[in-house]
């Protein structure tokens, strides 16, 4: 019995090591200067160039137009992450409210219209989606970046499940008190949904921030690049340079993962709740 316990711990330690080390190495290496990395390889120790490298990465104007900074890309990532998460919550709460709390003739039909979107991920219809965006002149806009990603029913289903679990007595009581649909939604349902909203916000923010394929298609103007979208550009720039700026590449990678990782770590409980409970 005692022996298996030790083995369990060892396996967990190895697991944690494998999950954590690459990122720690990426961070530590980013604090060395490029020539040092080129000579000595990746590093597990502090290099002392943290401030310079991160300042360069965040403020130096680069790219083809010479006007894009890391800070700029970070802001775009933030807009995409926040815009997507907020949009998702607003749209899906409203739609779920209509489906669960209203009696209307086309309810079943609309339920299926929305439900069908779960069948086909964006990746299988990228080219036609791009054509549509082109036709609507939405390429290189924040609208084009965010809104098409909202065209899926995930959030609606989370909230539908949740609303269904809200006791009927609340609505009965509210109606006796004379509350209409708007009042009930704002004064009863929204406050009740707070935890649920937080959980979904976290998941959706991470999802939005981490988008890659869609921003790659939608944005050719570097002013709209997100950090995650800019990653490949970083790698492409190396081709042909003598001493690649490994440190800067690592620094950008760290910046690109920092906000979502922080959110998941800090709000771990809500994050796990949102991820697992919503699909029971």
């Amino acid at each position: 019995m005692h022996r298996t316990r030790i083995i369990d711990h060892v396996i967990l330690l190895i697991g944690a090591f494998i999950m954590v080390t690459p990122v720690v190495v990426a961070f530590m290496t980013s604090t060395h200067d490029a020539a040092d990395i080129h000579r000595n390889g990746l590093s597990l120790t502090w290099g002392g160039h943290f401030a310079e490298t991160y300042e360069t990465v965040l403020t130096r104007e680069g790219g083809f137009t010479g006007k894009v900074t890391g800070f700029n890309m970070m802001m775009n990532s933030m807009i995409l992450g926040l815009g997507f998460a907020v949009g998702k919550i607003v749209l899906s709460m409203l739609a779920a409210y209509a489906i669960v709390y209203f009696r209307f003739p086309l309810a079943t039909f609309f339920f299926w219209v929305i439900f069908t979107t779960l069948l086909l991920p964006l990746e299988v219809r990228i080219l036609p989606s791009y054509e549509v965006m082109n036709a609507l002149k939405l390429t290189n806009t924040y609208t084009g970046l965010i809104v098409p990603l909202l065209a899926s029913a995930t959030g609606t289903f989370y909230f539908r499940q949740f609303f269904k679990s809200v006791p009927d007595e609340l609505l009965e009581a509210a109606r006796i008190d004379g509350a209409g649909p708007f009042k009930f939604f704002i004064d009863v349902l929204v406050p009740l949904s707070r935890t649920m909203m937080a959980a979904i916000f976290i998941i959706m923010f991470v999802y939005g921030w981490n988008q890659y394929l869609w921003p790659t298609l939608m944005t050719t103007d570097e002013g709209f690049f997100t950090l995650v979208r800019g990653i490949k550009q970083i790698l492409l720039v190396w081709v042909g340079s003598n001493i690649p700026d490994y440190n800067e590449a690592f620094a950008l990678a760290i910046l690109a993962m920092l906000p979502p990782v922080m959110i998941v770590v800090i709000f771990q409980r809500w994050f796990i709740k949102g991820l697992t409970e919503s699909d029971k």
Binding site: V206, N210, V228, I231, P260, I263, I272
Partner: peptide, 15 residues
Amino acid sequence: LIWVYAIAPPVAGLI
């Protein structure tokens, strides 16, 4: 064990 969930695939690819 769970934080890597938050890392975007291309960032994981870069590392």
